[in-house]
Design a protein around this nucleic acid. Structure first.
Lengths: 251, 251
DNA sequence: ACCTGAACACCGTTCAAGT
DNA sequence: ACCTGAACACCGTTCAAGT
């Protein structure tokens, strides 16, 4: 029954950090909080990211954060997402072909996310942090598609397709492993693949050398350790070729 | 200091459910647990899904679940993911064109996930639950691509592109809203869009009627309330047209 | 204005104990 | 075999209090 007290003690004397400078302003700023949050997410992932851990890192009580960012954890993660995409911005250059411009955008987006892979689930699978993509980038994509000839409804559809293409592959490629029992899960998957029946799954069994741990659904390592470069290029090439064909039909 | 006691009491007397049948086997089965888990995820989403809530729903102590599923929460969510995709399976029919077969697969996948939209983040953004897609489905996709002429490395790349296309759009379309402050966040986004400068963002401002709440990054509602049917069709049409062109270059 | 400190209502998971 | 019950080590968030 005294564990509660111990909890309270642990609140300030966590293994690593602890609040210091008693009674004096720690001089927190919103930017500092967001940047530290990104660093923490980079280190432990969004699943395990907590305001208490962030407080430890900053040397303040976790509750101090709320004064600077009212929205708490959610708002912080949205900021982290847009922070990770700082460098993706790319002015649309009417000199270059719209297709090449989009291809370059896709590659830049992937390069940026590879610097902060743990942010991928935020961008790909949560509405809020979709706001991490800047309106400037949206405008530029619209400009590229406008140059391609898309208008009105066709523009909206093409836009949605482009954003899905930009986020989709990379979200999957960088999808995080299970937090704890990663190696147990990995070995259970390799067992399952090793004992795949060539009768029931002939192609899978035959192509396994090229596919195991290098293909979606069949891998136990994500894109950080094992980038899917050629798959990515195949994907954006297919998509953009098709989009070009679509643009050609626009009258 | 007595709150700990109250916590323990609350453990069995949660608002809704409570363990009954003292001392008698509750007759849990793994299937029952997984199906109830899916129902709970459908109701409250994976973020808020907890073993304690699941225990309440099942009328047992949350710790009882560990006897049936050793892996705890992670293993359960993986099962939930594969459970949600039960009906996606589709035999490859060599009679139909591989392109049409893939298009139909994409639509089936989307239809299935629309029945369980809260499962989308699991499939799109976490390595484990990628295992939710059955090996049968993998084999069939390989068969379709084999019929298209892809071999070896080109097959692996095409496969990765196809899976990314299948999951990517839908993951984004069904991305969940922020749990709590959804309406606060929504109104802040609408404000931001309403006050978009036509000088800095000419296309965005002009196309806003078609884009607001219907386009990625610019919406505050997900695909459950607002399906992006035509965007989806544009996406898969572009991708498949490009893939077809790629297949044509194969020698 | 900015932060501490206590408190509330949650979590996942382990493990001994009951039946 | 199957479940209870207690315990441990965590969470996010609110709010009064300090300075």
């Amino acid at each position: 029954l005294r564990t509660k007290l111990e909890d309270l003690v642990a609140q300030r004397t966590g293994k690593s950090g602890r609040p210091q400078k008693r009674g004096v302003s720690a001089g927190l700023t919103r930017e500092q909080i967001v940047e530290t949050s990104l660093a923490v997410v980079d280190r432990i992932g969004v699943e395990k990211f907590s305001l208490r851990e962030l407080g430890r890192e900053l040397g303040v009580f976790p509750t101090a954060i709320y004064w600077h960012v009212k929205g708490g954890r959610n708002e912080l993660l949205a900021e982290v997402a847009s922070c990770a995409l700082r460098d993706v911005d790319m002015p649309f250059d009417p000199g270059i072909s719209w297709r090449n411009w989009l291809a370059e955008l896709f590659r830049r987006y992937r390069r940026s996310l590879r610097q902060h892979p743990n942010v991928a689930p935020l961008l790909g699978a949560h509405l809020v942090s979709n706001g991490g993509v800047s309106l400037r980038l949206v405008e530029n994509v619209l400009a590229a598609l406008h140059a391609a000839g898309f208008r009105d409804m066709a523009l909206a559809d093409a836009y949605n397709a482009v954003i899905a293409a930009m986020l989709g592959f990379v979200t999957l490629e960088l999808a995080p492993l299970p937090g704890e029992d990663a190696e147990a899960w990995a070995s259970s998957l390799t067992d399952r693949l090793h004992s795949v029946s060539p009768l029931r799954y002939p192609l899978l069994a035959q192509q396994l050398p090229q596919l195991a741990n290098s293909a979606f659904i069949l891998r136990w390592t994500n894109g950080v350790e094992r980038p899917l470069d050629s798959g990515f290029e195949a994907f954006i090439d297919s998509f953009l070729t098709g989009l070009e064909a679509r643009a050609g039909l626009l009258s």
